[in-house]
């Protein structure tokens, strides 16, 4: 069953076209990756889907419902969680408060939010230990855990992750990827945006490759990992690009 269906999505910043007709789909329970270099339109795709950026044209359907023109806060309510690029935790709020806001839409049910927060602490023991600490003082990896935990507070049906391992030490990055597998194991569907094709293709079921606002390749992750063009561009290619 298709959970997210994106059809011919166009988007622009001012006069600059960022997405020139993107179409893809994410099935229920899948991990789907959007790969591409800096500026290919990966982040814009996520921001347009989740309502942070307005689509020029095209259509986004989530669980059979048209969400193309919904405001971001209503997209969240529809069950689509978004962990944005750069983590974007609330730096001057503590860990517990950040998670509390993740459950903002359930705020009338305090005990449910508190219980869910305990589950998130179980999933990320590090966050439980640091619940009283300001988010801005956490390490990058801990902040990424917090950003993911915050998005999980509402048990989204689909979790969109924007470069979740960017800027993390390799060990931390591995931990984040483990957590993502675990989340999928609990029944969530995952859409992940990454520059690092290597590790992402090992994680994903299927992938799409973006170049300058268009999808140029798509297929099962295992096949794309063997594709010469992908290898040349993202795997064996310029280490400087991968390091970014």
């Amino acid at each position: 069953m298709t959970l997210l269906q994106v059809s011919d999505l166009h988007s622009r910043y001012g006069q600059v076209e960022a997405l020139s007709g993107i179409s893809f789909e994410v099935g229920d329970g899948e991990i789907v990756a959007l790969l591409g270099s800096n500026g290919a339109g990966k982040t814009t795709t996520l921001r347009t889907i989740t309502g942070l950026h307005r689509a020029r044209s095209g259509r986004v359907e989530f669980d059979g419902r048209d969400i193309t023109r919904l405001d971001a806060h209503k997209v969240v309510a529809a069950g689509l969680g978004h962990v944005p690029e750069g983590r974007r935790v609330f730096p001057a709020l503590n860990v517990a408060e950040n998670l509390l806001l993740g459950g903002y839409l359930r705020r009338r049910d305090r005990s449910a939010v508190a219980a869910r927060r305990e589950e998130v602490y179980e999933m990320f023991p590090r966050l439980g230990e640091r619940r009283g600490q300001l988010a801005g003082l956490l390490s990058g990896g801990e902040q990424q855990m917090l950003a993911i935990g915050r998005a999980l507070m509402l048990r989204p049906r689909l979790l969109a992750l924007d470069e979740p391992t960017m800027g993390l030490a390799p060990q931390m990055a591995q931990q984040v990827l483990r957590v993502i597998r675990e989340i999928r194991g609990q029944g969530a569907t995952i859409l992940i945006v990454e520059q690092n094709a290597h590790q992402t293709l090992r994680l994903a079921d299927r992938a799409y490759v973006l170049e300058t606002g268009r999808i140029v390749l798509s297929g099962p992750a295992s096949e794309l990992a063997q594709d010469d063009r992908v290898k040349a561009a993202y795997l064996g290619g310029d280490p400087a690009i991968e390091a970014q």
Partner: peptide, 18 residues
């Protein structure tokens, strides 16, 4: 708390359903 969060990061606040 949401008000303080909004003062820190408007887009991140929107992504919490605010």
């Amino acid at each position: 708390t949401a008000m303080r969060a909004l003062a820190m990061d408007r887009d991140a606040a929107r992504l919490q359903g605010i």
